[in-house]
Design a protein around this nucleic acid. Structure first.
Lengths: 139, 139
DNA sequence: TTTCTACATTATAACAATTCTAAACTGTTG
DNA sequence: CAACAGTTTAGAATTGTTATAATGTAGAAA
């Protein structure tokens, strides 16, 4: 929940020029009460609803990748025909409802810390992500 | 490590006709000491190396999906431009080396059981998968 | 064995998500 | 302002995957 000049500052400080497209995408992604999950397609629709100046699809892709690289977004590892992103960059996990094709956050507090008792020499752990697949009770 | 007549039996018992293409793919996937990860593209190459009778790409896709549905293969949830499959269908997890784009098994014994302290009403848990992303130590 | 039929395979077309391209545009710096 | 590097853009190209429709085949029945 920031205003435009704060987005401009945020972008500039991370080496991204604060263009009007990027500021608009910041608004759409971060001017919300709650964090959310989205695909590129979802995002294009949200942008369409909130402005008349359309943003090119290529720009949406570029911006999402730039934001992901800067850590403003996380990509959710899931097998799908399209990529899912998350505006919640805090450490947390996901349910994936295979029946409804729906992603739901799992609060970090609701998952006991995952302990990995093995390592790969020369590598350090960057993240540990848990995906809990669920289906309808009866099925 | 089965022979052809055992694959035939396996296929038949799960309601899949034991065609020569499916038997060949069984050999390529399951006649190995160790389990492994693969993409469709990898599999096509492996098939090419082990036979001169080429199998149509569509058949490879169909067969992999059929085997996945029957539980002979697992799909690994990871963000990639292509789908990864695993001939190891036992419960286990993965490291993903982001530097080398390489998947490595984590033995189930090396991960403390993941406890999820929340549920979705009307849904039951089908699987709990842990993806540990690693990068080079120094980076 | 021959016939029948539902299931499989095939090559190719279609499709959808994503990336590339090259020209036009725009923030920023001097 | 001028200059330039970074950005946006529309559309083409690419890539992984799925659909199509004709041909082939395993298995059952006659």
């Amino acid at each position: 929940m920031l205003n435009n000049s704060q987005y401009i500052e945020k972008l500039r400080s991370s080496g991204l020029r604060p263009t009007k497209q990027r500021i608009k995408i910041c608004e759409v992604l971060f001017n919300t009460e709650k964090t959310f999950h989205f695909t590129i397609n979802d995002l294009v629709k949200r942008i369409g609803k909130s402005t008349n100046d359309k943003i090119s699809l290529a720009t949406v892709y570029n911006t999402v990748h730039a934001f992901k690289n800067k850590g403003y977004l996380k990509e959710i590892p899931i097998n799908s025909d399209q990529s899912y992103f998350d505006t919640n960059t805090s450490h947390h996990h996901h349910f994936y409802d295979e029946t409804q094709k729906d992603l739901i956050d799992i609060d970090d507090a609701d998952v006991e810390p995952v302990k990995i008792n093995t390592r790969i020499p020369g590598k350090k752990i960057k993240s540990v992500e848990v995906l809990v697949k669920v289906v309808d009770d009866k099925s």
